[in-house]
Amino acid sequence: MTSGGDVFQNITGSTIVNKSIVEASFNKVKEEFDSDTANALKVVAAEIEKAGNKEAAELFESFNEELQKPEPKRSVLRNF
């Protein structure tokens, strides 16, 4: 179980994008930038999930975790 309330069961071989983290990033980006940029995060999350690329999902989750920090490092975000 994640802190956002999502429950993952029987997911062997599945690629999961943590929707709670994406939603938190969406809200932060929408507040600090604009809704188009925030919506892009949701589009990327959906495409990663659709593609089933585990590495992409892990990198995207790390990107979103960095984005949640009070002062995210732009160089780290660019690398993701």
Rank of each mutant, 00 (worst) to 15 (best):
Asn10Pro: 01
Ile16Cys: 11
Asp36Pro: 06
Glu32Ala: 06
Gln68Leu: 15
Lys69Met: 03
Lys30Met: 00
Ala57Cys: 11
Lys19Val: 01
Glu55Phe: 12
Lys19Gly: 06
Asn39Gly: 02
Phe60Asp: 12
Lys42Glu: 10
Val76Ser: 01
Ser25Ala: 15
Ala57Ser: 15
Ala46Arg: 11
Phe33Cys: 06
Asp6Gly: 00
Asn79Ala: 04
Ala46Gln: 13
Asn39His: 06
Leu67Tyr: 07
Ala40Arg: 05
Leu67Lys: 10
Leu77Pro: 13
Val29Tyr: 00
Phe60Val: 08
Thr12Gln: 14
Ser25His: 04
Gly4Ile: 00
Ser3His: 08
Glu61Gln: 15
Glu49Asn: 05
Phe33Asn: 07
Asp36Val: 03
Lys69Cys: 01
Ala45Tyr: 03
Leu59Thr: 08
Val17Glu: 08
Phe8Pro: 07
Ala56Gly: 08
Leu41Lys: 00
Lys73Val: 00
Ala40Gln: 04
Ser14Val: 08
Phe60Ser: 13
Asn39Lys: 07
Ser3Met: 07
Glu31Lys: 12
Ala24Asp: 04
Phe26Tyr: 14
Phe80Trp: 04
Asn18Arg: 13
Leu59Pro: 05
Glu65Asn: 14
Leu41Gln: 04
Asn10Cys: 01
Ser75Glu: 06
Asn27Ala: 06
Asn18Met: 09
Ser35Thr: 04
Gly5Ile: 05
Ile16His: 10
Ile48Leu: 08
Lys28Leu: 02
Lys73Phe: 05
Gln9Phe: 02
Val17Asp: 10
Phe63Trp: 14
Ser14Lys: 15
Glu23Gly: 05
Lys19Ser: 08
Glu55Ser: 13
Phe60Cys: 13
Ala40Glu: 08
Pro72His: 02
Ala46Phe: 11
Ile16Gln: 11
Glu61Gly: 14
Arg74Asn: 00
Phe60Glu: 13
Val43Gly: 08
Pro72Cys: 03
Asn64Arg: 09
Arg78Pro: 01
Thr37Tyr: 06
Gly52Asp: 12
Ala56Tyr: 10
Ala45Cys: 04
Ala56Ser: 15
Asn27His: 05
Gln9Tyr: 02
Phe80Val: 00
Asp36Ile: 01
Asn53Trp: 07
Asn39Arg: 06
Asn10Val: 02
Gly5Thr: 05
Asn18Ile: 13
Ala56Asp: 13
Leu67Gly: 10
Val29Ala: 03
Ser25Gly: 15
Ala24Asn: 02
Glu65Tyr: 07
Phe26Ala: 03
Phe33Pro: 01
Glu49Met: 03
Thr37Met: 12
Asn79Pro: 00
Glu55Ala: 14
Gly4Ala: 10
Leu41Trp: 05
Ile16Leu: 12
Gly5Phe: 10
Arg74Gly: 01
Glu32Ile: 01
Leu59Asn: 15
Glu61Phe: 10
Ala38Cys: 00
Thr12Ile: 09
Leu77Thr: 11
Asn18Ser: 10
Ser14Arg: 11
Val43Cys: 09
Leu41Gly: 04
Thr12Leu: 13
Asn18Thr: 08
Val22Trp: 07
Glu58Ser: 11
Thr37Cys: 08
Val43Phe: 11
Phe60Lys: 12
Thr12Ala: 15
Lys42Ala: 03
Ser14Tyr: 11
Glu31Ser: 10
Met1Ala: 15
Ser62Glu: 14
Glu66Ser: 01
Met1Arg: 12
Arg78Gln: 13
Ala51Lys: 15
Ser35Ala: 00
Thr12Glu: 15
Val7Lys: 09
Ala51Leu: 10
Leu77Tyr: 09
